[in-house]
Design a binder for these strands. Structure first.
Length: 569
RNA sequence: CGGGGUGUGGCGCAGUCUGGUAGCGCACCUGCUUUGGGAGCAGGGGGUCGGAGGUUCGAAUCCUCUCGCCCCGACCA
């Protein structure tokens, strides 16, 4: 490709509304252009990177036995009503009506359509399993789109769906997909981890997230530096040893604690560390009001609580209903004499005696509260979020917490959709069973953006070779005829060798060309100017360190070709 | 959804308080000089000042409504 005939409009200044590095750099490098909040044009350079990633994804999907198809982005409401998600999904689902007033949605994912497709086509266990995927544009009407391609509303995602006659078959394909995902991210040169994850909205049993580690990541990932344990903080657990019981069991005693609504205030007032106090959280759920007790220095984890209760809906109890639901004022609520019908306690409290808790009376706490004696023994469980330094649940090594960008997510769905949508098959005995499903998502744009987050410097992007828009830029320095001819010749040689090269033949000063090349981040650059040509030499360098090497043209071409081939994997 | 901010040429901004008919840098075009890390000089083109309505002799500026975009918050008992 000749730069002068291509479509690259780099920006010297950062657009004011860019908020993360990948977005700033990709906008400046003319890879993406914002059209509306969370909606982008993929400019030619950006599209090339996406297409390169897509090619890798297709290869690995093929290797895992998945078969490509394409489903519509606009889907009829009937299918979504059938799966109940039309009602459940909420405002993230963009709903539209056609001219006849029929309702459709712009698909955020495609379980309904694929299930509908497979139930029509497959009736026998003999035809199972199947694993189908597409690479398709999706739309989720996010409350607050931000971070460029990392959290857009319209985005490109690879989504695969597998259908099985039994659990073992699901386990087998699930494992193949996990391996494929690891291979994809490895090939892109991304530093990533696979972690246990919550299944969230999609539903199902097992689930793993693939996280690219980066400072700007939206998710926190817990990992063990010793064993292979890794999990999303939403889900991570730690090995809690519990507290030794106090030697002396105290009597329940009210104390006057004015103006101490927060745990920190209570701790300061009583001169005790918050780890020796009990924090009371109250939730409103579809299963009723639930009180959750956690150690004062821990944080309640709504997802764990929600999962434990099998609740569909859970939120902090609104202030307006707080007193009537618990019988105590906000800030002074506790388990002793509460009206809350159900009381849970985090495992961190197990064995702890002589609790300090709210007394359900203004400006009053109790000391010496003991479960079983002063109030009903609560249901114990893991209801708090893991902190860095907590012991690993497998090997007790202190856990680490890193920021990560979720680029892939695989689920064992089970029969949630197949049962709801009557996607069944006949087994060996002629019995009709719902198919068992798995689903596997991978964000294309997000992965490309994650690569930029992970690999850049002050001057621009440093692309990993496999997803660089071009592998090599040939920079023509100066416009003398011999320079032009030499640059052209080198470019042709590379192209003939199947290298993805771009020739910077613009009538620009050298500095401009160097700056643009660094900004866009081509992994390799060959520079051809009058100076070095005079001694029959040309130069080449890697973007990552920019150390220039000189050599005869044939040698340089040879070196560059072999470097590119080696880096392609 | 709540709070805050902002909207002026392709990009970044000033001008708004104190109304007088739009300006700077980058980019773009022409010429000359330059030419190994975003050149210099000279000249030039491009903007219904987000939109609608109002006040006024006169509105980017004041008032009302509206739309877009950005930020912060929505684990606190």
């Amino acid at each position: 490709m000749r730069w002068s005939q291509y479509f690259i409009n780099t920006l010297r200044e950062v657009p004011a509304d860019a908020d993360v590095i990948s977005q700033k750099l990709m906008m400046r490098a003319a890879m993406i252009r914002k059209v509306a909040a969370g909606i982008y044009t993929y400019l030619p350079l950006g599209l090339r990177s996406m297409q390169k990633l897509e090619a890798i994804v297709r290869e690995e999907m093929g290797r895992a036995g998945a078969i490509e198809l394409t489903m519509p982005t606009i889907q009829p409401s009937e299918l979504w009503i059938e799966s109940k998600r039309w009602q459940v999904y909420g405002k993230e689902l963009l709903r539209v009506k056609d001219r006849h007033g029929r309702e459709f949605c712009y698909a955020p994912t495609a379980e309904e359509v694929i299930t509908d497709t497979v139930r029509d086509a497959i009736n026998s266990y003999r035809s199972l399993p199947v694993n189908l995927y597409q690479i398709q544009t999706k739309f989720r009407d996010e409350v607050r789109p931000r971070f460029g391609l990392m959290r857009g509303r319209e985005f490109v995602m690879k989504d695969a769906y597998s259908f099985h006659a039994n659990r073992e078959s699901l386990d087998e394909i699930y494992e193949k997909m996990r391996v494929a995902y690891g291979a994809i991210f490895n090939r892109c040169g991304l530093d990533h981890v696979a972690v246990d994850a919550d299944t969230g909205n999609i539903g199902g049993s097992a689930s793993h997230e693939f996280m690219v580690l980066a400072q700007s990541g939206e998710d926190a990932v817990v990992s063990c530096p010793n064993c292979s344990y890794g999990a999303n903080v939403e889900k991570a657990t730690s090995k809690f040893f519990g507290e030794p019981a106090a030697a002396q069991i105290e009597e329940l005693a009210p104390i006057h604690t004015p103006g101490t609504q927060s745990i920190d205030d209570v701790g300061k007032f009583l001169g005790k560390p918050t780890s020796q106090l009990v924090k009371t959280l109250v939730f409103d759920t579809d299963k009723g009001c639930v009180m959750v007790l956690v150690r004062g220095d821990r944080e309640g984890n709504e997802i764990k609580i929600k999962n434990y209760l099998s609740a569909e809906f859970l939120e902090m109890m609104p202030d307006a209903r707080f007193e009537s639901a618990t019988g105590g004022p906000i800030g002074y609520c506790g388990p002793v004499g509460t009206k809350a019908p159900r009381v849970l306690a985090d495992v961190s409290l197990k064995g702890l005696t002589n609790w300090v808790v709210g007394a359900n009376k203004s400006d009053t706490h109790y000391t010496g509260a003991n479960p079983g004696r002063d109030f009903q023994e609560p249901e114990y469980g893991d209801f708090t979020t893991v902190f860095a330094g907590d012991p690993c649940p497998r090997c007790a090594t202190p856990l680490e917490i890193h920021r990560g960008i979720e680029v892939g997510h695989v689920f064992k769905l089970g029969t949630k959709y197949s049962a709801a949508m009557n996607c069944t098959f006949l087994d060996e005995k002629g019995a009709r069973e719902p198919m068992i499903m798995g689903c596997y998502g991978l964000g294309i744009g997000r992965t490309v953006a994650a690569a930029v987050e992970q690999s850049h410097d002050d001057d621009g992007i440093i692309w990993p070779m496999p997803i660089a828009p071009f592998e090599v830029v040939v920079t023509q320095i100066g416009k003398e005829d011999n320079v032009r001819a030499a640059a052209d010749d080198i470019y042709r040689q590379l192209r003939d060798a199947g290298i993805d090269a771009i020739l910077d033949d613009r009538d620009e000063r050298p500095g401009v060309k160097f700056k643009d090349a660094d900004l866009i981040g081509f992994p390799l650059r060959i520079g051809i100017g009058a100076k070095s040509l005079a001694i029959s030499q040309i130069e080449w360098s890697f973007r990552k360190d920019r150390a220039k090497q000189l050599g005869a043209a044939e040698e340089v071409v040879e070196s560059v070709i072999s470097e590119v081939r080696a880096a392609r994997i």
